[in-house]
Design a protein around this nucleic acid. Structure first.
Length: 402
DNA sequence: TTGGATCCAGGTGTTGTCGC
DNA sequence: GCGACAACACCTGGATCCAA
């Protein structure tokens, strides 16, 4: 895995670079009883977003805390590494706080005279990005990485000063990625606030637009195909529920295909400007809406509803209306829970109350959306380039090439 | 067209077992 | 007895089938 390192570098096993490295408290083996208050026990899910998130933690009482705090309480500059679930996700402990870690997390205290916390974290991140851990998973139904794997993990070690330099370079590209993502989020926020600025809050209708129902704005509504999709790329790509994001964008990174007869082509092939509405999903996700705006020919699945607008409405206006806070609240309230799933049928969707601003104003909004979407596409390409650059830098960094 | 039922996959928490 | 590991259980999102 590691060869041809520059002068001054060496390869060392992780086990020789840490002061302590062990899993957290085994609540089952140690017969720890959880309680509703007391000291939090951090589990994998609490670090899976790359930060320490205390939401949805379990607690232990004072008796257990006193017994286990010495061993299982993280200190500043320790690294917490997920051992199960989102394996390899890790965070640096930056603040002193009273909590313990569950055994699904490894607590790692780097020996700062040999390796810096930031350098080790960068190395863990590189392995995670490369899916390296997947090669060494153990376990049956539930996979995990073992302590022996971590102890023997070979790490290229430059002098401390160079470790800091490498971290700085990698921080540079990861900060650029972070800023690029923030920029993209700002474009979305801009469009949401532009919608409110131009049309007013839907719930109060401060501009006094005429009122109606969504069905007043539709020319045609129909369900997608109920035929089974294939993964052999046969036929047309088919949009499914996972191709519509919660915020109302199309994501075609994961596609299946479907073969359509001549008769079904007209019925199930999308046209630019079609609205897609997710009728069946979990309660929170049902009602995801987007506008189809791609040049290629796509079909759509039966749990999506396609609506074509009449001359009173612009599809972007309706999509942003349904994806507004008001729209989401209406949809959440309307969704009927089936077993594990929720549903809003086409009739119910069309019965949603809405205001109807002049079509000229809606078109003006749509034109702004299209301009922003064009800019976002370019910014997304930049983001992809930055991510490629960051990955390439990580590869080079740990070979001593930067 | 609609929605109830079921299945599957992935993620995560809990419990059991084995070897040192 | 303890730690490491294996397996079971459960939850959730997503996909599909099928009867009405």
């Amino acid at each position: 895995m590691i060869d041809n390192l520059p002068n001054g570098w060496r390869v060392e096993k992780l086990g020789n670079l840490v002061k302590r490295m062990h899993q957290g408290i085994n609540t089952a083996a140690d017969k720890v009883e959880f309680s509703n208050s007391g000291y939090p026990i951090l589990q994998t899910k609490n670090i899976s977003k790359g930060i320490i998130d205390f939401n949805d933690t379990k607690y232990m009482n004072n008796e257990y805390w006193e017994k286990y705090k010495e061993k299982y309480k993280p200190k500043i500059n320790d690294i917490l590494l997920a051992n199960i679930g989102t394996i390899g996700k890790n965070v640096i402990v930056k603040e002193e706080s009273d909590y313990l870690i569950h055994w699904n997390i490894f607590l790692i205290e780097p020996n700062q005279t040999l390796i810096t916390t930031n350098y080790l974290k960068s190395f863990f991140d590189k392995l995670y990005n490369q899916n390296y851990y997947d090669l060494f998973l153990k376990g049956g139904t539930v996979k995990f990485i073992s302590k022996s794997f971590l102890i023997d993990l070979q790490i290229p070690i430059p002098p401390l000063q160079q470790q800091e330099k490498i971290v700085k370079v990698l921080d540079l590209t990861s900060n650029l990625i972070k800023k690029q993502k923030e920029l993209l989020e700002k474009y979305d926020l801009f469009l949401k606030s532009k919608f409110i600025e131009m049309f007013g809050e839907p719930v109060s209708n401060p501009k006094g637009w005429s009122l109606g129902k969504l069905k007043d704005l539709f020319l045609q509504v129909n369900y997608g195909t109920s035929s089974k999709a294939n993964e052999e790329n046969k036929g047309f790509p088919i949009l499914r529920m996972n191709n519509i994001t919660y915020s109302g964008h199309l994501n075609v990174s994961d596609l299946k295909h479907i073969e359509l007869s001549e008769k079904d082509l007209k019925k199930f092939i999308l046209e630019k400007g079609d609205i897609l509405f997710n009728r069946t999903n979990s309660k929170e996700l049902v009602g995801k809406t987007t506008v189809f705006n791609l040049d290629e020919q796509y079909s759509f699945a039966g749990y999506l509803v396609r609506a074509k607008v009449n001359d009173k409405a612009d599809p972007y206006f309706i999509s942003y209306f349904l994806n507004s806070d008001y729209g989401k609240a209406v949809l959440l309230n309307m969704a009927k829970n089936i077993v594990g799933m929720a549903n809003i049928n086409a009739q119910e969707m069309q019965s949603i109350d809405c205001y109807i601003p002049p079509i000229e104003l809606q078109n003006q909004f749509a034109s702004i959306v299209e301009k922003i979407e064009t800019i976002k596409e370019k910014e997304n390409q930049k983001l992809k380039q930055l991510e490629d650059l960051h990955n390439s830098m990580m590869q080079k960094a740990f070979k001593g090439e930067i």
